[in-house]
Structure formats: structure tokens, C-alpha cells
Design a protein around this nucleic acid. Structure first.
Lengths: 350, 350
DNA sequence: TTGTACGCGTTATCAA
DNA sequence: TTGATAACGCGTACAA
């Protein structure tokens, strides 16, 4: 059963009421200056009276322009992703766009599926935060369709499309440098899933710092990017290092919890750092020292880049990398050579 | 400049390639059983070969059914709202719907504006979590349009439309009862903005408990629903009560922070409870005793109700109220009559 | 400045 | 079972 037109008020009824042709009504809406003042007023009154609103669907079909952009993010429940989305929306809504936001639940197949759905919804552009480290069917679908697309925060490195991200490598290197400079000698790096571009970059930053300073006493562990994973990984540690580096804040917070339970004090016995500066990190006790990313700004710029693409402009920079800041709080403590109590304690424990 | 059709692959090109009429192609897509096996296969091969996907816009124009539902929530950055949205999406996406999610930033005017925008985008249904306690232009716009609409979590009480929410009153009453039963004699209730339906309901629950048990020693303070607000309100307290009740978890956590700084221990000196059981509350130290709402489920049911509306069914229950659970953690301590140390201390402080 | 008529891509009706 | 054709609501080239 075809859905009943709940609203028969279309351009035609307005035209009738105003006693003009539909083209005049259309013109009043789209280029009022090309209509005589008299008719313009008549039409406007008719529009007002009927409460007429142009049917966007019909409009889109006709013009080929839907004024809708889509987002594909790994998890619509994660505030960080949504802050990016908000950034992009804030830029694009001033240009008259609407938004469809889809979450893949970190599922790569879902990602391609959503892409196709968005395509058939005729979105004009798409902003994607990748769910995995590789997605071959994704690339194919994009190229076939010719949509405008921008990667945000994470990208598929084999797809050459504009990307707006954060310098994960430099950020992680910087905070690890800080640990080395404050006298830490032994390290554990707690990574999450190792497949996304950002996860790889962060680990690379950690490794760079280790190499640069000639530190040999480090260990890299893989888990997930969750509180629980940080907790469990830490609990399994045979040897407690002087510093624990979390692949993100959640992991770091989990590590702190585990360390506390194991009888270690942060930062007196062990320093811990994270990455993200998520909402809660400033309220945790002790306050987590971490790396802050310009999340909102990243989205905002991604929106801007997409808009350049949409308006047919040449995008000067295909890749935009934003820098991070270190947020000093309370989980890092300066250590010096005489401070060997910890190491001894570890010997006993292990 | 009209946008160039990037895809000339439409139903017509499929028909040509398969050597059939467009009606046959349409039928293969919408009612395959009504097409002979031979043609069906030919058409399918053509579709595959061209990578054809039906244009949803054209489809919508023709059928009047867009298969899109919109959400209006106060803040797209708040994980709680998004978990509701996810619940609704999970239900509705199995029915083939897409989603447009809009945030008002707690701005009521924006709310009406977004509603109108969604309407002109021809969404079939809308799920709304109100941004304020009243919005008169909202009601009018809905009634004029005849959209299917469901309120989720918060509603405008003067608009008679289906509502799915949580029993805020009973939840708050229950946890306050718990405090009374565990020997607490003096209370401070820290509310957020007092204009939303849920905020009012929670306060009502607190008051009911006070009255029921004949407690006179209580105080209600208004601020915002933020950590900072809970912190500031608490800092200004002249007299520290035996129990602080937060209008939500954020406020409660802020109160704990303030109490700690003021030299009070939670829960030894003061008990604190919240409402929401937000993500971080289980990790806070001490773990926050609070009220858990079935957030996801609420969204799921809202989705279900909307679907009933959309498929023209009679919705049996216009109002669905879900019950809450108390989550016992570490911020409440049993007190007894001999435990008067605190009161004395307070006398001195104030 | 205004109106007529066509087409956007699809589904639905009707004949064949 | 299949095909030709009329809508859906709008924008726009072209004619007046």
C-alpha cells in the first residue's frame, strides 16, 4: 500500500492559491529577486497560509544534490568519535548540510555495507573513521561511486584520499621522552588492538623514543583499548617497570587500578601515562598525565576539507596532521639513581 | 551548476544491458517471485555487472516512504543519549531504516528548527529526547506535520504522544530510602537544571522519601548536571550532612571531590549517591553507589514503539516506564545512633 | 517577468 | 509473465 500523502500541500497548491504558475513559486523560493514584488508577496502569503515546505526529496532528485553528508565511525557510543563528528557538523551545518551518522561496531564488513547504504541514500560526501587497518572492498566501492570522501583520525593507508589526523607518533614519542628525561629506566607499553593506523603510529612513537635514548629495558604487550585490558595485562606482569605507558587513557587507568591492588603506589612506585585525555582522566585519582588530541578541531577541519571537495575546489593539502599536547597531572614522578627501592622490591615479588 | 550525474547506472541501463524493460528490473528488485527465472537471472547478472544500486531518492519520491528516521537529542556528545540512540537504531535497522541524529546543544530554539529540517527531509518518524521542560512551538510543528513521533527519556508533558522513559521518581526514592534505612539523618540534594521532566521526577522521588520517613533535616540545591556544579555546590555547604544525594553521577562525583578537599572522607564521614551509573562510576574511587537505568533498552523500546506507529498499528501503551536498579558500591556506609562524631565536627566547622 | 513543458529515477497501473 | 506509461514534486530551459 502506497503511503498516503499526509501533506497535499505541494508547490502546486501554493501556485493555485496564489494564482500563479508553479515556476513562479519555485522562483520565489530559489531566486526571489527574479520575481516581481507583487507576485512575490502573493506567493509568500500563500506559502505562509498553507505552511508549505519544499519537499527535499523531490528537490534532491531534480538537482542531484541532497545536502546530506554521512559519517562512518567505529562506535557511535564513544564520546571521542562523537566530538569529532560534532566538529565536522559544526562546520558543515553552516553550509546547509544534514548528517547521517553510522556506527560499525568495529566491524569491517559492516563498514562496507554502510558505505553502500549511504551511497544509495545519495549522500554527497562521507567522512570516515576506519574500523580496521585494511578493508579492500571499501576502496573498490568508493572508486566505483566517485563520492567525495575524507578520512578522519584513522585511514586506510592504501587509499589515496584526503586525511585529517593527529600526530600520534610524535605525541607518544613526546610523552615517552618525558618519562626518560624524568629518570625512568624500565618500561612497559600496553597497546590495544594493533590493527588501526592510530594504534600503530602510537607504538611507533614509543619505539622511537626507546631507540633514541638507547633504552633496552622495555616490553610491549597487546590487548584491547579498554580499562579491563589494561588491568589484566598489568596483573600478569612478571616484573613491574618504573613506567607504564598506556596506548590510551582507558588502558592506563586499568593499569593504575591493577597496580594499586598489587600494592604499588602511583606515582611513587610506578609512573603511568595515557593517551587521549578523555573526559574522565582529569577527575581520576591521581589525575592522569596524558596526551591531549585536538579532537573537535580534527573534526572541524575534516568538515572543512570535505566541503572544499564538495564545492569542487582543489584541496591543497591531502593530508592534515594536527599536533598534540602533553597534559601534566599526577601520575608521573621524577626518579633518580638512588631511588632503587622499587627495583629490589620487584626482585622479591617476581 | 547542476551537479553532474556521477552515476549513469540507473534502472534504465540495467534494463538495456539485460535486454528487458525497466519494469522487469524493478520487479526483480521488489518482487522477484513475479519474474520468470530466466529473466530474473539475466537482470541479476546485469545488476551485478554494472554495480547498480537503486536510487533511494527517486524511490522515496515515488513511494512516499524514505525509510529514514530522525533523532533529536540534547547533546550528541553525551554517551548516555547515544546509547539510547543505539538501542533504537538496533531495533529499527532490522526494519530497513536509516538514521539522522541531531543535537540541539540543550538549546530549545534549535530543537524546533531541527524538527522542521527533519520534516522537510521527509523523515518518516522522529524520536525526541527533550532539551527543555517546555517548548510550545514544538507541539504546533508536530501537529501540523503529522509525523510519527516518540519521546524518549524526557518528554513535554503537555504533548500527548507516546513516551518511553524511566521511573526516575521511584529510582530516586528507592536509593534515598536506602540511605534512611542505613541510619542517615541529614541530607543534601544536589539537583541540576530544574527544567527537564527527568530532573523534576528525581527530585520528587527524593522528597517522597523524606516525607515518608518524616525526615526534616534536608536541603535542596540547584546547579547544573556537571561535575563542577556538584563540586561548587558542595564547597558552599554551611553544614555537612550525613548523606549527599546527587541528581546524577557527575554531580555526585563532583561532591565527593569537594568533600575530600574539605577533609571529609567518603563514606566514613559522609555517604554520597548518584543517579545514572555512567560509564566511569564503577571505576571511581571509592566506587559510586548509584541508580542504574536501562538506557539501551529504553532506546530499543522507543524504536519498537516508533515502528508500531510507522506500520500503522495501534500502540497499546502510550507510556512505557522502565524500572531502575540500585548499584551498591562503596560510597554509602551504615550509620548508627552512637556515631555522632560527625555531627559534632560539623558544628565546629560551621 | 512569467508560464509551459520536460525530466530526474523510480514504482504502480494497466494492457497485452 | 512482461512492457509501455503515468505519476511522485520539483527545477529550469525555453518560449511568450
Amino acid at each position: 500500500m502506497a503511503k498516503q500523502r499526509n501533506n497535499s500541500i505541494n508547490i502546486k497548491s501554493v501556485a493555485q492559491l496564489a494564482g500563479v504558475s508553479i515556476s513562479t513559486v519555485s522562483r520565489v523560493i530559489n531566486s526571489p529577486e527574479s520575481v516581481s514584488e507583487e507576485l512575490r508577496e502573493r506567493v509568500r502569503k500563500a506559502i505562509e497560509e498553507l505552511g508549505y515546505r519544499p519537499n527535499q526529496i523531490a528537490r534532491s532528485l531534480r538537482t542531484g544534490s541532497t545536502k546530506v553528508v554521512g559519517f562512518i565511525i567505529p562506535d557511535i557510543t564513544n564520546p571521542a568519535f562523537l566530538l569529532m563528528v560534532k566538529g565536522a557538523e559544526d562546520y558543515l551545518k553552516r553550509k546547509g548540510y544534514m548528517f547521517i551518522v553510522c556506527g560499525t561496531d568495529h566491524n569491517i564488513e559492516e563498514e562496507t555495507k554502510l558505505l553502500k547504504t549511504l551511497l544509495s541514500q545519495s549522500v554527497e560526501g562521507i567522512i570516515v573513521t576506519c574500523s580496521g587497518g585494511r578493508n579492500s572492498s571499501f576502496a573498490k566501492t568508493i572508486q566505483d561511486s566517485g563520492v567525495k570522501l575524507v578520512f578522519m583520525d584513522r585511514r586506510y593507508e592504501d587509499i589515496d584520499l584526503p586525511y585529517v589526523g593527529v600526530d600520534n607518533t610524535a605525541g607518544m614519542e613526546k610523552i615517552t621522552d618525558l618519562l626518560v628525561q624524568t629518570g625512568h629506566r624500565s618500561f612497559v607499553y600496553l597497546s590495544g588492538e594493533r590493527n588501526t593506523s592510530s594504534a600503530k603510529e602510537r607504538l611507533r612513537g614509543f619505539m622511537k623514543s626507546m631507540k633514541k635514548h638507547g633504552v633496552k629495558d622495555y616490553q610491549v604487550l597487546y590487548g584491547r583499548f579498554t580499562f579491563e585490558s589494561g588491568y589484566e595485562l598489568t596483573k600478569k606482569l612478571k616484573k613491574i617497570p618504573e613506567a607504564v605507558v598506556g596506548g590510551n587513557d582507558l588502558v592506563a587507568l586499568g593499569a593504575i587500578e591493577a597496580l594499586n591492588e598489587m600494592g604499588y603506589h602511583v606515582p611513587d612506585d610506578v609512573s603511568v601515562v595515557g593517551f587521549d585525555d578523555m573526559f574522565y582522566s582529569k577527575y581520576s585519582k591521581p589525575g592522569l598525565t596524558t596526551v591531549r588530541q585536538p579532537i573537535y578541531e580534527m573534526g572541524y577541519i575534516a568538515g572543512k576539507v570535505l566541503w572544499q571537495l564538495l564545492s569542487g575546489k582543489n584541496v591543497r593539502k591531502r593530508v592534515t596532521i594536527l599536533q598534540t599536547d602533553i597534559v601534566l597531572r599526577e601520575t608521573v614522578k621524577e626518579r633518580n639513581a638512588s631511588d632503587r627501592r622499587l627495583t629490589e622490591k620487584v626482585e622479591v615479588v617476581s
